[in-house]
């Protein structure tokens, strides 16, 4: 198609780089986002670590258990909550509509968002693990567990990013997205074994939690931070890593389908 006298459109990598830069600046310069998404998990770890440092048996403290949960919650915040709120805001304030009127390849918007989620997730995990190791004597996971750590993080963050993008289409604006997604995420954290041991939660709540990704992310991460002897105290009696992967992959597919079907570049009533 390209003729010689026509100037060609910018290459995909250059636009991707530009969008990634925009998204990183948008996130890390916004104080509320940084405090809410990055600092809240850190504060919770510090407070819970200091207060609830009791023994779970086998010389394992609740802080170690909480480490896995708070990382899962941090991933949830960086992906689902962050995407739902920021995209709903950008849709209602016209940012998305503005972009849709430029020759920017549409994929570039999503690439930028993914880079943002990855950067925020990496930052959260690094800070949480550092605090855990320095202040609460948490052992870094042994070799093979890093692999589990990596795939649980990637699958969890992918499924929650896609869900966040899909959920953003339901909200009228960023404020209403925040008002619905934040309590939902908090509730999910309570029933998914973040703040309490999952085995102590009533079984019907366990069932509800098992429908959503967070429970599986926390469980996968417990296999990383806790000794295998504690797998026996999981409701299923094991870490169920195969099922963790399966559920997260299914949620990725559902999320992708919802995104493709629901994503809008403009407010519903401006077409």
């Amino acid at each position: 198609m390209t003729t010689t006298d026509e100037v060609s459109l910018p290459s995909l990598p250059s636009v991707y780089r530009s969008r990634a830069g925009v998204e990183l600046k948008e996130f890390f310069r916004q104080r509320e986002a940084v405090v809410f998404t990055l600092m809240l998990p850190v504060l919770l770890l510090v407070v819970f670590g200091a207060v609830l440092n009791f023994d779970l048996g086998d010389g394992v403290t609740f802080t170690q258990y909480f480490m896995a949960g708070i990382i899962a919650a941090g991933i949830l915040g960086a992906s689902l909550q962050n995407m739902a709120i920021s995209i709903a805001t950008e849709r209602s304030d016209g940012t998305l509509k503005g972009l849709a009127g430029t020759p920017m390849p549409r994929s570039a918007y999503f690439v930028g968002k993914v880079v943002q989620v990855l950067a925020v997730t990496a930052a959260i995990i690094a800070i949480l693990v550092l605090i855990g190791v320095v202040f609460y004597g948490i052992d870094l996971p042994p070799g093979a567990d890093w692999l589990t750590f990596a795939w649980v993080t990637v699958l969890g963050s992918a499924s929650c990013t896609l869900l966040g993008i899909a959920v953003s289409s339901l909200a009228r604006n960023g404020r209403s997205a925040s008002a619905t997604v934040t309590p939902f995420a908090l509730l999910l954290q309570f029933i998914s074994g973040v703040f309490f041991q999952f085995s102590e939660i009533p079984s019907w709540m366990q069932t509800v939690a098992a429908l959503f990704p967070l429970k599986w992310m926390a469980q996968g991460l417990r296999s990383v931070f806790l000794p295998d002897s504690l797998a026996a105290s999981e409701p299923a009696g094991s870490w169920e890593l195969g099922r963790v992967a399966l559920v997260l992959i299914v949620w990725c597919l559902i999320g992708l389908l919802l995104c493709v079907r629901t994503f809008r570049w403009q407010d519903r009533d401006s077409r």
Binding site: V22, Q30, E90, G94, T95
Partner: peptide, 8 residues
């Protein structure tokens, strides 16, 4: 309506 708010 113009573009939205930005941190950039």
């Amino acid at each position: 309506s113009g573009a939205g708010e930005s941190q950039l």
